[in-house]
Design a protein around this nucleic acid. Structure first.
Lengths: 208, 208
DNA sequence: GCTCATTCGCGTACATGTACGCATGTCGTC
DNA sequence: GACGACATGCGTACATGTACGCGAATGAGC
């Protein structure tokens, strides 16, 4: 019976996402393949497309689940600066350690449930710390941009050896500009600048 | 003569790069294809691989040429803050307007001639403005990370419509956090913070 | 139980990048 | 000129994502 097909309902969106997530968590994102997933599920490749719109759609879902597990800071939020810094650092680590996440963040704005929960939580903290909504938004945007930038640059170095023609060690020099330590220091300056600006604006509003 | 081949030396690395660059400059990066280029050059697809290592290698070269044309600020460098801000903004614009550039910056550290020239020029300015080499490097790293982050996030919104399920206009809200204006303001805070830190360090060194 | 619309699994087919190896052109050395 | 080393164009073949449509399983309304 060469035309035999697998029983009805063998594959579901949930199963597909689970198998894909397992592979990504095992660091096997690069070899994540529709045909590979189908094979592991024991079905034909095209069957998956009944349950996910595309491979990218699938990766979105996987990344959302991974993000949900790791974005939340452990720091108590009394010290809002430390809390925000940890939140940013967790996203940076996530982007660096999960190429899949990088792929998602670069392809389109991330509005998945976990990403929204994260944004809401951070905005809540910023709103309490800064004088008005506008300041909080500016701060969020700046922090987020900086974080993603650091993550991208750090990740772009992963598994990359400088070309043999690197006379002055320029590549290494460049690499030294974007380390996790640099991330923390730069973030501090950014936050300092934002705070100063916000406080100045608040004072100005009181004494026009 | 179905086995006829094109005359010897028809294709060269230079020709391939030129044709590819023309397409990218015309905003046709998405449809840049090895087979398409080969067709335009009148040769077989595999012939290109005698002159470029891979499609990515080709894109690297294209992006280097485009970057060389546009990175240099018009501002006179008397006002180093304005000069650096313009340099950063030019890179941001480049990343946003050229998906090819984004692709390159995310794939590996960019050490092409134009990128190195740009880095050298910026470092030169920072060295003159800040008290020591270390401060200049920190500043460069922070500025570069922030710039790339803003470019990435802004570009990720291009050609993207929020999903129909966007109750609170969350996507638009998110979008408002990363605009060119936000970029400029955040950059200013970052630079302010960096300057303050550098000056503090310099003062401390004089009066230990 | 019958009918019909919907859901599902899958076979086929296409576009893409590119590894591999063959055959042909070019040039240095005698 | 002859010959060998190398450079070059290209045909074939494979892995990948996925559009399209067929036929089978399921479930709704009678």
């Amino acid at each position: 019976m060469p035309g035999s097909r697998v029983p009805w309902g063998t594959v579901s969106r949930e199963r597909v996402i689970q198998v894909a997530t397992k592979r990504v968590r095992a660091g096997r994102y690069e070899e994540l393949t529709i045909r590979g997933l189908a094979s592991e599920l024991g079905v034909s490749p095209m069957s998956l497309y009944r349950h996910v719109r595309s491979k990218d759609d699938l990766i979105d879902e996987v990344v959302d689940r991974l993000l949900a597990r790791c974005w939340r800071p452990r720091t108590v939020s009394d010290d809002w600066l430390a809390w925000v810094a940890e939140a940013a650092d967790r996203l940076r680590r996530f982007l660096v350690s999960q190429p899949a996440a990088l792929h998602v963040y670069l392809r389109h704005p991330v509005v998945s449930p976990a990403a929204i929960a994260r944004m809401d939580a951070i905005m809540e903290v910023l709103r309490r710390a800064l004088p008005d909504e506008d300041s909080a938004r500016r701060a969020y945007g700046a922090i987020h941009s900086y974080t993603v930038g650091c993550g991208v640059l750090e990740a772009s170095r992963a598994g990359w050896a400088p070309p043999e023609t690197d006379p002055d060690g320029l590549a290494q020099q460049l690499a030294a500009y974007t380390t996790p330590r640099q991330f923390g220091e730069g973030l501090r300056y950014l936050l300092d600048g934002l705070c100063a600006q916000a406080l100045f604006k608040a004072a100005e509003a009181r004494v026009p």
